[in-house]
């Protein structure tokens, strides 16, 4: 029998199969996708209405609160989706389906991780486009071509960063109950401790410091400024207590965080998957 070596075609074949499985699940149980689009739209309506009479100087660089909120909701939706990405893997672990994958002569078990990244990234893009489109219909504008590039690049980095952590947790925690509990604990506090709902200038000093180190903020601010027509990478995106950060700074910080998280979880994934 001819024994196969590492082969990119095989990597493609197995990654495609694993991703296709996740999309078949999504197609037959679309509630995750629907909820992921509905929830931020409800937030957009309710929070948009709640702060519609906020004083002009409360919101730096934007015309209305709905305009300000859109970026926060796009990031929050992608973040929540990525945080939940460990759940299918956890269920596969619990129900023994993971063994079916581990017994197979996968050319690289990286395909298991890669398929989760791909799935969540595509899902986040679909949800983000839906949010951006609804925002546009509500009169909150739409990013130009370069701005869209920044939105998607930022989302890819955020999704990679959070998905890697979620997959890691799916291997460390004993079961899905613990993973869901952890997601509940982390999700909303991270949102409130970011610039998704309010600018740093509106926050008490201590919260401003926390928000200016929150990875969500590094994703939210470049997306927020991507709605500006004169956007470029050196545009000041965040007035942090420790100094101003440009779009480039925010994306670079997110990039460093993503690479660091991948390096940190790599030994664990190797141990669990090999």
């Amino acid at each position: 029998m001819e024994l196969k070596q590492f082969n990119f075609l095989f990597l493609y074949q197995e990654t495609f199969a694993l991703t296709k499985r996740l999309f078949i699940q999504l197609k037959r149980r679309p509630s995750t996708l629907v909820a992921g689009i509905l929830q931020p739209i409800i937030w957009l309506f309710l929070f948009g209405a709640l702060f519609s009479n906020a004083p002009k100087d409360f919101l730096p660089g934007v015309d209305s609160y709905g305009n300000f909120l859109g970026a926060g909701l796009i990031v929050f939706t992608a973040f929540s989706g990525a945080l939940n990405s460990g759940l299918p893997l956890m269920f596969d672990r619990e129900f023994g389906f993971l063994n079916r994958l581990l017994v197979a002569p996968l050319t690289s078990r990286l395909s298991i991780v890669l398929s989760s990244f791909l799935y969540i990234t595509i899902l986040s893009f679909i949800q983000s486009i839906a949010i951006m489109f609804i925002s546009y219909l509500l009169g909150y504008g739409f990013p130009e071509f370069f701005g869209l590039g920044i939105v998607f690049a930022t989302l890819i980095l955020l999704v990679l960063f959070v998905t890697s952590i979620s997959l890691c947790l799916a291997f460390i925690l004993p079961g899905h109950i613990e993973l869901i509990a952890l997601i509940f604990v982390v999700n909303l506090p991270l949102l409130f401790a970011s610039t998704a709902l309010a600018p740093i200038s509106f926050m008490p000093a201590w919260l401003g410091w926390i928000a200016s180190f929150n990875p969500l903020t590094f994703a939210i601010e470049p997306i927020r400024v991507s709605y500006t027509s004169s956007i470029n990478l050196d545009f000041i995106a965040l007035h942090a207590p420790y100094g101003d950060l440009t779009c480039r700074n925010c994306i670079s910080l997110l990039f460093i965080l993503t690479i660091s998280s991948l390096i940190v979880i790599n030994p664990l994934l190797n141990k669990k998957l090999n």
């Binding site: 196969k4 082969n7 095989f10 074949q13 197995e14 495609f16 199969a17 296709k20 499985r21 078949i24 079916r100 994958l101 197979a104 002569p105 996968l106 050319t107």
Partner: peptide, 12 residues
């Protein structure tokens, strides 16, 4: 059938 198709891809 989908499961068998999935399995076949895992075995290249």
């Amino acid at each position: 059938r989908e499961l068998l198709d999935f399995q076949a891809d895992l075995y290249h």
